[in-house]
Amino acid sequence: MTLLRRHLAGVLVLGIPLAWIVIFMLVPYAIIGTYSFWTKTYPTFQPDFQFGNYATLFTDPQYLQVLLRTLKISALVSVASLALAYPFAYWLVFRCRSAGVRTWLYMAVIAPLWVSYLLRAYIWKTILGTEGILNSFLMWAGFTDAPSDIFLYNQFAMILTLTYIFIPFMVMPIYTALERIPPNLAEASADLGQTPWQTFRKVTLPLSTPGIAAGFTLTFCLSFGDFIAPFLVGGPDGNLIAGVIQTQFGSALNWPLGSALSIVMLVIVLSIVSLSDRLERSSRIGAH
């Protein structure tokens, strides 16, 4: 009886999530995987096994360009987030003397995650637009005479907005990584005659690599797959890969091509995640 119960508990605890993964993740992925080999015969699609959709993605400049642009934008967003998040987290962990201030500032950076993602994208549209707040502020202050359309609907607006949205995902893992570094390491390094900069470069920075990798993974993947913010602030040259996928399943009605794009996205995200996993594991082994 107890044996059966013990067994039953194990089956439930493992079985439920396993069934969920199979039904709601593996089967759907398999389905789009299958669709990605089908042919489009207007207005429907035919079962097939051919690599034409993938060939289109990597040879048609239209798609290749979007793919490269998306990679570029997500990389820039990650770099910008890192440039803002690292000094901030470093200051919080090593320079900020009051524990209260530390907690409050950390919370202040994380809190926007709880505030609607959509709003955080929308705010920048209202600020940067031609009839937006920045323009009317500049005119009111006498810097410009006429509203300018240079702020919104370009890649800079997109990078700015995505950085604004995803920066908490960079701060959290870096803060955690820096917090784990024992303070006596820096003291030992200083005692051995290293300057603060040398200590940072040779001790702190290498030990915080797992945090940087985790933050980079999150911000990169999240901005890589976003289609709402690019739509709101990106304008015509702001079409990213997720926007193209959305079009294939919407107005373009080319599910096979859209599926192939989704699979490409899945593969890119998986490779980044496993790369960062490996990096984290190797640095952990190196630390011991």
């Binding site: 993740m25 759907p28 992925y29 797959g225 959305q246 998986l270």
Partner: peptide, 24 residues
């Protein structure tokens, strides 16, 4: 693999989850 799959949607863009489940 189980751990990786169950954590995947954190980094996987919502559009892939949405599209694949829509197809199913």
């Amino acid at each position: 693999l189980f751990r990786r799959l169950i954590l995947l949607p954190i980094t996987l863009p919502g559009i892939v989850t949405g599209i694949s489940m829509l197809n199913m």
